[in-house]
Each structure stands twice: as structure tokens, then as C-alpha cells.
Design a protein around this nucleic acid. Structure first.
Lengths: 185, 185
DNA sequence: CGTGTTTGCCAACACTCGTTGGCCTACACT
DNA sequence: AGTGTAGGCCAACGAGTGTTGGCAAACACG
């Protein structure tokens, strides 16, 4: 019952390896065997720690977006703050590809898609202000642009988008996001 | 050697079933057996007609975007025309989910991702005008928004985006696209 | 009508996958 | 030191996969 230090180490080793494999290969092609090999342990240990592949996946995509409360900012600063935070999340070391895991597998795995909708509804929808219907539509429009750029940059790796640095992207995208947040629908 | 009528019928039956399965399940989870069952024939026939699963996939994503020559249009009409054509492509009966196949599998399958980059470079990049470097960057920015909305609407099925009709989406997205086409980078 | 070719199905192979149970080792605690 | 428990590996099962070869039936054509 009590976690020893060693068990906790391999537990996180498995999780790290799982995130990398899920991010690179997607849910279906990431195999328990490969993840275990990366973590330097036996495949059966993965089962003992996380119960099943689904359980491991659920642990791998358990992410906190840690969104800033843009509602407190002056309106003209909200869009830029959001976009900047978005790139910090994707390119940050700490998250280590969780978002890539989530997005990539939300596309082949219905459970992941639902989790993504939940994350969106729960975290994105509310931090943009009171959750009126209009507000969630605005948030969804923002999501189309931000997820689209993540798709092209981190998954499809469109060379023109990969080549741009984040500052140039912020400059291009912030006005779009601002329009979705303010323009009448 | 000469194609009989019956062979051509099952050939397209296989292709139709394959597109549907690939679109719904993605490359990995779409099985030859399921596709064959949908087409009402034996799995081995799929191999005889298309050689391998990869061959079938290549045939399934062989798509012509049929983009309009927006270069001839007055600038203020280009964005709206593009967005409208984009939705017509995705929701049109004729294409029957080819684009969903392409996008969905480009995310787990590296070969599909490269094919997507090729389609983009070959068809999208050039029809937006002379292929200067600035032009391809603009085209890529347009792609982030349009692929993003396709992702949210046809794959993740974000309810707020699914609920909007195409006219409302055109109204929301066209100004964004127009900005990417015109605003200094 | 006879014959060769196409269309199709059946059965199987070789492989990989997630998952399980048994067994050995190393540590913790009294 | 003795003992129970947790950490770890090995071997295997059962299911599902893409793929192949052989054989029956339907067709085309002389």
C-alpha cells in the first residue's frame, strides 16, 4: 500500500516513456512492449502499475492546462496573453508532449476525443468569462485557430509553420483570436 | 487484363468501403477484414485488387482538391470564395469523406502526413498566386485556420462548431483568411 | 460446346498485440 | 535472523492482424 521510493521511480519512468510513445506514434501504434522497453522494465509491470493500456493512457493525458484568468485583463491584452500562454504550454519542457498526446490520440481514439471535449468545456470555456452560450461559441472559434496551428506545427509539421518563431506566430494569430473574442457573432 | 464490368463494380465497392472505414477509424484501426465485409466480399480480394493495405490506402486518399483560381478574382472576394469552396469540398457528397481520411490518417501515419504536405504544396500553395516564399507562408497560415476548423468540426466534433451552419462559419472565418492573405507578415 | 481466364471463397500461415499467472529476488520490519 | 510483502522477469495464452496459395464457380470467346 505504501509507495516505496523505487516503485515511484519506475512509475514515473513508465509514464514518461508512455507520453513519448503516445505522442510519437498515437494510441494504436504505441505498444505496451515498446513503452516498457523504453522504461527499461518488463511489459507486465506496466499492467501491474496502470491496470491496462487504457489506464496508462488516461494517466498519460491527465493534464492541467493551467490557463490564466484572462477575464481580469483589459480586453486588448487578452488575445495576446492567450496565444502566448498556448505556445508556452506546447513548447514548455514541463508538459513534455502531453498536449501532443492528447491531440494526436483524440483523433483516432473516441475516448480521447471525449476527454478533449471535456478539457475544452471545463477549462477553456470557463476561463474566457461567464459560460454563456455566446461565450462558448467564441471560445470554440478560438480553439479552431489554436488547435489548427498546433496541428500544422507539431503534428503535420508544415515547413512554413515550423519555420516561424513563436513571436511571429503570436503576431499573426493574436488579431484573429481578438476578433473571435470581440466581434459580434 | 481488360476490366470487366463486374470487377470494376467490386473495385469501387472496396474503395467506397475503405474510405468510410479509414475516415471513421483511422488507418490503424480500419481492418482489411472489416472493409471487405462492408463491401460484401472476401478479404483476399482486397489484396488482389490493391496489392496491400498501403496500396488501398494510397488509392483511398488520391484526391483532387479542384481549387478555384482565386488569383483571377478581385482581392476582396478571394477569402470568401476559398472558405466557401473549402466547406463545399468537405461536406460535398462526391468526395465522400476523402478529406476526412486524409486528415485523420495524416495524424497517425507519417506517409499520409507527407502526402498531405505534398497536396498542400502542390495544390494549395500554387493556386494562391505565384509561389514566392511570402505566398507560401500566407497559404500556410490560411491552412492553419481551415484545417483547424475541419479538425474541430469533422473529427473532434466540438459541439459549438458542429452546431454552426456553414454560412455562419464562412462569415466568421472569411475575415481571418482575408487578413492572412493581405496583412503584411 | 469446350477451354482458358477471371472472380471469388476458404483455410491457413506468420506475426504482433494486450494481458495473465507463476516464480524468483530484494527489501522492510519485528 | 526470520518472515512477509512488494518489485521484477519469464513464458505463455488467446485474440486479431495482414497476407498467401489453392481450389470451385462464373464468365468470355473461339
Amino acid at each position: 500500500m505504501a509507495f516505496t521510493q523505487r516503485s515511484e521511480e519506475t512509475r514515473t519512468a513508465i509514464l514518461t516513456a508512455a507520453r513519448r510513445r503516445f505522442a510519437e506514434d498515437g494510441y494504436e501504434r504505441a505498444t505496451i512492449r515498446a513503452i516498457a522497453a523504453d522504461a527499461g522494465i518488463d511489459p507486465s509491470m506496466v499492467m501491474r502499475y496502470y491496470g491496462s493500456k487504457d489506464g496508462l493512457f488516461a494517466a498519460a493525458v491527465d493534464v492541467d492546462l493551467d490557463l490564466p484568468a484572462v477575464g481580469d485583463l483589459p480586453p486588448e491584452r487578452r488575445a495576446e496573453t492567450l496565444v502566448r500562454h498556448f505556445f508556452a504550454l506546447w513548447e514548455g519542457e514541463r508538459s513534455s508532449g502531453v498536449l501532443t498526446v492528447l491531440l494526436r490520440s483524440a483523433i483516432t481514439n473516441e475516448a480521447a476525443a471525449e476527454r478533449m471535449r471535456d478539457v475544452f468545456a471545463g477549462q477553456v470555456g470557463t476561463t474566457l468569462g461567464p459560460s454563456t452560450e455566446e461565450g462558448t461559441v467564441r471560445a470554440a472559434l478560438v480553439a479552431t485557430q489554436l488547435l489548427g496551428v498546433a496541428l500544422c506545427r507539431y503534428i503535420l509539421r508544415l515547413p512554413q509553420i515550423v519555420a516561424l518563431d513563436t513571436e511571429a506566430l503570436v503576431a499573426s494569430l493574436a488579431p484573429t483570436v481578438e476578433r473571435y473574442l470581440t466581434e459580434p457573432v
